[in-house]
Amino acid sequence: MSRPRNAWVLPVSLLLALLLGLVPLPALLQPVRPYWLALVLAYWVLEVPEKVGLGVAFLLGVVADLAFGGLLGEQAMRLAIFAFILDRFRARLRFFPLSQQALAIGGLLVNDRVVSAVIHVVLGAPQHPWTFWWAPLLGMLLWAPLHFALDALRLRRRT
């Protein structure tokens, strides 16, 4: 059995995605912040589903809920739904060209926004501004560069 090439990339990328979600942005840009956790999680669910699945998504969401200070369990549920759908269609998505993968990820990010809006309606929490709906477009545009960067790190040979 061989050891993974760069085992550090998975935990470091998830931690970096969490930290990117905590970086303060100007009020104008805050609603369009890409959902970094979902993007990085999507990469790992597609590439190494034996290591990253629903359990990791849920635990990552709980950590994000605690770190971001939002509704407890909201991101956990959102990321678990996101990972479930990705895992369900993983076999097809892996063979899509990167442009079609980006469209699929964009659709999943829109679905994530719908889930978030429904949670806020059901719980009577304040609704997000309408600019909140632009973030999936930015996430879709970031999918290819993120995919290439993580692939390069994950598959890089040790010297």
Rank of each mutant, 00 (worst) to 15 (best):
A67H: 10
L103S: 05
H120C: 12
L141G: 09
Y35C: 07
Q75F: 10
G53P: 09
V115N: 03
M1V: 13
A104F: 13
L150A: 11
P4L: 14
V52N: 02
L14M: 09
W143S: 05
A149V: 11
F95S: 13
Q30R: 15
A102T: 04
Q127W: 11
G124T: 08
V63Q: 03
L142A: 07
V48A: 12
W8F: 11
K51V: 14
V12Q: 03
R78F: 01
L146F: 13
D65H: 01
A17K: 03
W130L: 15
V9Y: 12
W8T: 02
P34W: 07
A117V: 08
I81H: 03
L22P: 00
A152L: 14
Q30L: 15
P4C: 08
Q127V: 04
W134P: 00
F132Y: 15
P34R: 08
P11G: 04
L137P: 01
W143Y: 08
Q100K: 12
L16W: 07
L29H: 03
N111S: 14
D112G: 07
W134G: 09
P97M: 11
G21E: 06
L98P: 00
P11W: 06
F89W: 15
L155W: 13
F82V: 02
L123A: 15
L103W: 14
R94V: 10
V122W: 09
G69F: 04
E50Y: 10
L28K: 14
D151M: 02
R154N: 11
R5M: 05
F89L: 12
P136Q: 09
V110Q: 05
Q127I: 06
I119M: 12
F89P: 01
V122H: 03
A67Q: 10
P34E: 07
W8Q: 08
A17V: 03
V56C: 01
S2G: 12
V9A: 07
A91Q: 14
L15N: 01
A17L: 01
A64L: 12
L71I: 11
S2R: 14
A76Y: 00
R94M: 06
G73Q: 01
R158S: 14
V40K: 14
Q100E: 14
L72A: 05
F95M: 06
A67Y: 13
F132I: 00
W44Y: 10
S116D: 11
R157P: 04
F84W: 07
I85W: 08
L150V: 06
L39T: 04
L79P: 02
V122F: 08
E74K: 01
L153Y: 04
L25C: 02
L59D: 01
V118M: 10
P34S: 10
L54V: 10
G70A: 00
M77A: 08
A125G: 01
P4S: 15
G106I: 04
Q100I: 03
L109H: 02
W130S: 12
M77G: 08
R90G: 04
A7F: 07
P26M: 05
A57R: 06
E74M: 03
V122N: 01
G55L: 12
P11Q: 03
A27T: 09
G70Q: 02
P31R: 06
V118L: 14
G21Y: 05
R156I: 02
V62A: 07
V118T: 05
V45M: 11
D65C: 03
W36Y: 07
A125Q: 15
F148I: 07
A27R: 14
W130P: 06
W44C: 02
